[in-house]
């Protein structure tokens, strides 16, 4: 309802402004973000404090967003791609370099997320939210400590494991389990991961391959173990205190959703102001508390205090992140992955 109202209001505002002809084009910022990925009161606050009007638009997948950004140069000033898409957009020369003189709040960014290998020196991207992939398990059904991906292959948990129906993540954790990089293009490693996944499926451990359904089913005690994203894990743990989340010692994936400015942006300075605003600790705190993904903002983390810092799902200790990797774009290699994944899904 709030959303509908907000949309209606912004429509009314657009109509009013355009009919008066008094909307100066220079004072807008066109923001293209994921659906449900911000505390919307933050947008109003930004407009009030700076007088810059926010045109707020949404997308639901990285791939949709990339198509739109390529097709409409100049339509967006700030976009929110995941890290492997930042890499892809950079390769296509679609991103502008950010002038950090205008983004002083960048200083609050967590050190381990700075200077990432997808964007050395953060020339083009500022982290917005981040998270991990790990194992969500039910402490009533799992007695042993969960610290290795091997537990997903343990036949003790017959028909009791939910895997992710997502090529990159599932192949990625299997590669990690076997001691390879998640970004390897080495055919022997990839074939080995495929065989391992087929072995797992044939052994009868896997109950289902799913994405969005997993979190609610874990809340209802439908399975002992599941591969999930940390955001989903936090959601499930809030609803069922028997659940716990762990990042295996072999390492996993760390993902980062970033804020970037397209090279074709018409309002680059406003875009930098907007990014700086979202990096302000009180604003970053609002957004983090609205969507409950991990915040990259040390200022916000300090404001949230004990409740956040003691939460190992949201705020994993440095040692469990030690072996983690970012994904790199494999768009030119995806047919190879797809062929392997098809064989896993086809195994009976």
């Amino acid at each position: 309802m709030k959303k509908v109202l907000a949309i209606l209001l912004s429509l009314v505002m657009v109509v009013l402004l355009s009919s008066c002809g008094s909307a100066p084009q220079s004072n807008v910022v066109n923001v293209y973000n994921w659906e449900d990925y911000i505390d919307e009161s933050v947008l109003e606050q930004f407009e009030k404090e700076t007088g810059i009007h926010v045109n707020y638009m949404n997308f639901t997948t990285n791939e949709d967003m990339m198509v739109q950004v390529r097709a409409n140069p100049g339509a967006y000033d700030v976009i929110f791609p995941s890290e492997y898409c930042v890499e892809q957009l950079m390769a296509e020369n679609l991103l502008a370099e950010i002038n950090y003189d205008n983004v002083p709040n960048m200083k609050y960014t967590l050190e381990n997320l700075l200077n990432p290998d997808y964007d050395p020196d953060n020339k083009h991207s500022v982290p917005y939210m981040w998270g991990t992939v790990g194992i969500l398990y039910n402490t009533k059904m799992v007695d042993e400590p969960v610290d290795s991906w091997a537990i997903l292959w343990d036949t003790k948990y017959m028909n009791n494991v939910f895997m992710l129906d997502s090529i990159r993540d599932t192949m990625g954790i299997t590669l990690k389990y076997l001691g390879y990089s998640m970004n390897t293009r080495e055919p022997v490693a990839l074939e080995a991961a495929k065989d391992k996944l087929i072995e797992q499926k044939k052994s009868g451990v896997v109950k289902a391959y799913q994405v969005d359904e997993t979190k609610d089913k874990m809340v209802q005690n439908e399975a002992a173990l599941a591969v999930v994203w940390s955001g989903d894990a936090q959601y499930a743990i809030d609803l069922n205190p028997d659940l716990a989340y762990a990042i295996p010692k072999e390492g996993s994936n760390v993902w980062v959703d970033c804020m970037v400015i397209p090279s074709t942006a018409k309002n680059k300075e406003n875009a930098e102001k907007f990014i700086d605003f979202l990096c302000r600790p009180d604003i970053a705190q609002k957004n983090c508390e609205e969507i409950w993904y991990s915040s990259p903002n040390t200022g916000a983390i300090e404001l949230m205090g004990e409740e956040y810092t003691s939460n190992t799902t949201m705020n994993p200790p440095a040692e469990s992140l030690a072996n983690c990797e970012y994904f790199h774009s494999i768009q030119d290699f995806i047919a190879f992955y797809e062929a392997l994944w098809g064989e896993v899904k086809n195994a009976k």
């Binding site: 090529i167 896997v206 289902a208 799913q210 797809e338 098809g342 899904k345």
Partner: peptide, 20 residues
Amino acid sequence: GGNTMMFGDLIESKFLTEGN
């Protein structure tokens, strides 16, 4: 539970996942 694909799922993944 996504344990077996049908042809519709396969076509969907070709378009949406693989982008082919």
